[in-house]
Computed example of a mutant assay.
Amino acid sequence: MKLFNTTIFSSLLLLSLFSCNNDDDTNTTIPDDNVDSKIITAELTGQLSHEVYVDLNTGETVTSEVNTWEVAFDQNGTIISNSGKKVALAMPVETDFDAINEESAQGLQLYYDDESADKTLTAWNKNGFELNTPYILDLGIDGLGKSLGFKKFIISENSSSQAVIKFADLNGENEQTTTVEKGSGFVYFSMIENKVNEVEPANWDIVLKPVTVRTGAPCFTMGDAAMPGINCDIMRLNASVIINQNGSVKGAKTSNYPDLEPNDDPEHEINLLTIEDSNFEEITPSTVGDLEMTTQGNLIGKEWFHIQTPHRDGVYKVYSHITFVVNDEEGNNYKLRFLTYSKDGQNGYPTFEYQLIQDN
């Protein structure tokens, strides 16, 4: 796949949350009087079909298609699932790979990577994943919200240099055994295409991307009454911002209204705040040291916007009064704030402003 630079439950749910709306998502005015500011619009698209990696030091962005991989491996043995297209892991009753069939996937508990991007909270950690054990992978959805079906698989090796995976359709057809050679960072593998795809660039600080989030109760709390995707474990996609989990990128969140929580009532106090209520200009080299930095993946996450009622209209309030500080791979501190989530009336185009924090 080429990289390029850029300056059910049902598809109805996707359309209602991520498609066009006639209202602006915020009354923020994009600043044009500060030459030190950089403005980036990440084109995730209305269907959340892209993810955008940003190197704050250079201002360069790399956009990757979401629907090009299901699982990824790193040299530390971590396995992640593609949360951007609802990929999920399940453990079948059968312990024999060949015995798994279409019926094996019915009624299983599905495990998703946590939206926090915490590597200890992946679907694989939650499910007590083991080598040489057969599992089922829900391949997630395509760009139109259509299910891509399932694969059964066994991973027989997950060393620092390679992963060996055998997989097939649930009916046994299209069986393959593939060795995935590892490199720096994650290596992204598609069971659909049976190949490694290039996804993330070598250098990046934050990525704007879709993630799978749960609405409603977890199925395991409902016992025999659980109907996955119907009355529990209803999963949808939501835009999020994740900081690089390589261990060297840190960040903090700050505002003049730290006690106000996101709220979907358009008349709530937090939704009446504007960019004029921001503390963005107050963050300087002398004050940034007072902030508590963290490597938590979803430090920014979904904190910068919130859907308003009625939800069916897909109107979001962007919390431009919140300032985020990111300490990048080179040790530089940047402050950033989000300005909009839509472009030409369509959601899925978050725009943010950022500046290097330095003495004038």
Rank of each mutant, 00 (worst) to 15 (best):
A72K: 01
A72C: 03
F73L: 00
D74Y: 00
N76Q: 08
I79D: 02
S81R: 00
S83A: 13
G84Q: 03
K86Y: 01
A88T: 10
A90L: 09
A90M: 14
A90G: 09
V93N: 13
E94K: 10
E94S: 15
D96H: 13
F97S: 08
A99D: 14
I100L: 12
N101K: 14
N101D: 15
N101T: 15
S104V: 07
S104Q: 09
Q106A: 14
G107S: 15
Q109H: 09
Y111C: 04
S116F: 05
D118F: 11
K119P: 02
T120E: 15
T120R: 12
L121T: 08
T122P: 13
T122D: 09
A123F: 11
K126P: 08
F129M: 07
E130N: 15
Y135T: 08
I136G: 11
L137A: 13
I141V: 13
I141L: 01
G149R: 01
G149N: 03
F150R: 00
F150Q: 05
K151S: 10
K151Y: 11
K152H: 05
F153C: 01
I154Q: 03
N158K: 02
S160D: 10
S160M: 08
S161L: 10
S161I: 11
A163P: 02
F167W: 00
D169S: 14
D169R: 05
L170D: 05
N174K: 13
E175G: 09
Q176I: 08
Q176F: 11
T179H: 03
T179K: 04
V180I: 15
E181R: 02
G183K: 07
G185F: 09
G185V: 09
F186T: 07
V187M: 02
Y188P: 06
N194Y: 03
V196N: 01
V196Q: 06
N197C: 11
E200R: 02
N203D: 15
W204A: 09
W204Y: 09
W204S: 08
I206M: 12
K209N: 03
